[in-house]
């Protein structure tokens, strides 16, 4: 296990080298939040409540959603595709390490730099600069666990997308398509309450809501019964397990078609 932490540390150090990148990411997120603030202000336009959400709740949902989007965008699939295309993947395959775990730890390393430089400052800003009222509730306690499960589901999906490079070599298309499907169906761009009831029912049985909607609702409506939150976590855990098994099975298939020239 110690070996894998070296990958985590390595990825963190790479993140620190590109400090300027985080600065622009934060700046971009601030501009996004300002625009979202005005957009949602005109969506509410005097209305107290829309689909069960107040303006403050909707704004918190959208702004935090964009922050989690940045956190979950770890480019794991892009890195894998590059390793597969160039053949450097053979370096990892010939060592006694698990390729999925290696990727997981590098991804955690990348994301932990991003938590410190982007996620936490943004949350701070939401409450202190945008002055979103802080509602006391159990949801905040469950949120970190929920976010971790969302991270794992997202990683498993990215990993599976990365594996598709074994077949197509270039993954722009499949990666972009996945990102769009996730951002619309997970509730990252619009709270799921805004969708028509029938569509909502379908979205709730898909894995995507477990990546954004679930953790976001824990913070947007934190004052619910602990039982509700535990049930949400159970659904997330189930999806984490399902996507993990699916990505393993896909790996066993994909590895068979790998051909690395020379080396």
């Amino acid at each position: 296990m110690r070996g894998y932490f070296a990958f985590l540390r390595g990825a963190m150090l790479v993140g620190v080298v590109y400090r300027l990148g985080f600065l622009f990411t934060i700046l971009g997120n601030i501009v996004y939040m300002i625009i979202a603030y005005f957009l949602w202000r005109s969506i509410y336009a005097g209305k107290e409540i829309l689909n069960g959400l107040t303006f403050d709740q909707a704004l918190l949902y959208i702004a935090l959603g964009s922050t989690i989007f940045i956190l979950l965008k770890t480019y794991t699939d892009w890195g894998m595709a590059e390793e597969i295309r160039s053949g450097t993947i053979s370096v990892y395959l010939t060592k006694p390490i698990d390729y999925q775990l290696y990727n997981l730890f590098s991804t955690i390393g990348f994301a932990s730099t991003s938590i410190l430089t982007v996620t936490l400052p943004t949350i701070f800003m939401l409450f202190f600069v945008f002055r979103i009222p802080f509602v006391l509730g159990a949801g905040y306690l469950f949120f970190p666990v929920s976010l971790l499960l969302a991270f794992i589901i997202n990683f498993n999906m990215d990993y599976a997308i990365g594996l598709s490079a074994f077949y197509t070599e270039s993954i722009w298309g499949i990666s972009t398509t996945k990102e769009i499907i996730v951002s619309v169906l997970s509730g990252a761009l619009l709270p799921l309450q805004f969708f028509p009831a029938a569509v909502q029912q379908v979205l709730m049985v898909l894995p995507f809501q477990a990546m954004f909607f679930t953790p976001l609702m824990m913070v947007t409506k934190p004052d619910q019964n602990a039982g509700v939150f535990l049930q949400m976590l159970a659904v997330q855990a189930l999806w984490a397990a399902v996507t993990y098994v699916a990505s393993r099975l896909l790996y066993n298939q994909a590895i068979k078609v790998l051909r690395v020239a020379g080396g």
Partner: peptide
């Protein structure tokens, strides 16, 4: 990268 091109266009 024909497969990627087709998926990209759909994407």
């Amino acid at each position: 990268y024909r497969a990627d091109f087709l998926i990209s266009s759909v994407g």
